[in-house]
């Protein structure tokens, strides 16, 4: 019974949170550009726009190109979406409020996030399209590169907390970690942005040169899965940054209102992700790789040294 409730709660969060973030993105992006965004769907300020989009996607024809590798092509969107579901399962909302409390939660999360690159390569190769392939190869290079700073900065906070369990990390968290772990937090957040291929790290999609990258040949429901994966990705990266670096449920009345603090922090970070997307132009492929290998990786390595040094002193 308890398990059923937990799974249902995680599924609800998995389906509702991305839609809220997507709607917020529509409206925030519009107003940042001096527009009003969707206004008609659902009558009040277009609140039902994403539901209408979903209905539209379901009605569309599900096309598989003739030369495509059918099985792989049709499986790729699921592979893109499913890892995020597992990640959301392990994220603690409040004290004791977690889908699945694992001792090696962080390890599992990082391992599962790495599956994203497989989905990208699957969709790219099976589409039998040059744009898809180029986008996929770019995506693979980007995801493999940014995996390193992501894991290193997460390792730093795991060392500081002395545990790999996500609730354990939140419990061990102290407010002064905000300064101590600040470089790791920045690196994790930025690398996370690159992992979910959000602008300014959307070189694999790059609609002005690659049509839509590895998603070019997708339509209908499978394309909607890819889009949903992007929004779930925002939630996941915001939630992981919250849990690892911003103290998760810590805040006033955390025993009762812990879940509220976690959600507030997640939405604040989601807003920042949207804000960055509106503000910055896409990074070029070489800039993207240089930024990863020459800035993020050294910074995260330096943070590891700092963490060990402070840890041995305290």
């Amino acid at each position: 019974m308890d398990l059923v409730v937990r799974v249902l709660a995680v599924m609800a969060g998995f389906l509702v949170l991305p839609l809220v973030v997507g709607q917020v993105e529509h409206k925030v992006m519009a107003h940042m550009q001096g527009r009003v965004g969707p206004m008609y769907a659902g009558a009040f300020h277009g609140w039902a726009q994403l539901i209408a989009d979903g209905v539209k996607f379901v009605q569309k024809e599900d096309i598989t190109p003739k030369d495509a590798d059918r099985t792989v092509f049709q499986l790729a969107p699921i592979v893109a979406l499913f890892p995020y579901l597992i990640v959301i399962m392990t994220i603690p909302l409040g004290p004791g409020l977690v889908g699945a409390s694992l001792d090696i939660g962080l390890f599992l999360v990082l391992a599962v996030l790495g599956i994203g690159v497989v989905a990208v390569l699957m969709s790219a190769w099976s589409s039998a399209n040059k744009y898809s392939l180029l986008g996929g190869v770019r995506g693979a290079a980007q995801l493999l590169g940014y995996e390193l700073p992501l894991v290193l900065s997460a390792a730093s906070v795991a060392m500081a907390a002395g545990t790999l369990s996500l609730p354990g990390i939140v419990e061990a968290w102290q407010p002064w970690w905000l300064i101590w772990q600040a470089p790791a937090a920045l690196v994790f957040f930025v690398a996370g942005l690159a992992e979910i291929r959000r602008p300014p790290f959307d070189m694999p999609i790059a609609d002005s040169e690659l049509v839509f990258g590895y998603m070019t040949e997708y339509s209908g429901l499978r394309f909607a899965f890819f889009l949903l994966a992007e929004y779930v990705g925002i939630v996941v990266i915001a939630a992981l940054t919250t849990v690892l670096f911003l103290g998760g449920w810590h805040g006033p009345y955390e025993q009762q209102l812990g879940w509220l603090w976690t959600l507030l922090k997640i939405f604040a970070l989601a807003f920042v992700i949207i804000w960055l997307r509106v503000t910055y132009p896409r990074m070029r492929e070489d800039q993207l790789q240089r930024f990863c290998w020459l800035i993020l990786v050294p910074v995260s390595l330096g943070q590891l040294v700092l963490t060990v040094a402070v840890k041995s002193l305290v």
Partner: peptide, 21 residues
């Protein structure tokens, strides 16, 4: 420059949209 860019988009967010309905 990066911070200035962020400031521009945030300022635009607080202004009324110029869209004509």
């Amino acid at each position: 420059g990066l911070l200035d860019g962020l400031a521009v988009t945030l300022k635009t967010l607080t202004k009324r949209a110029t869209t004509q309905q």
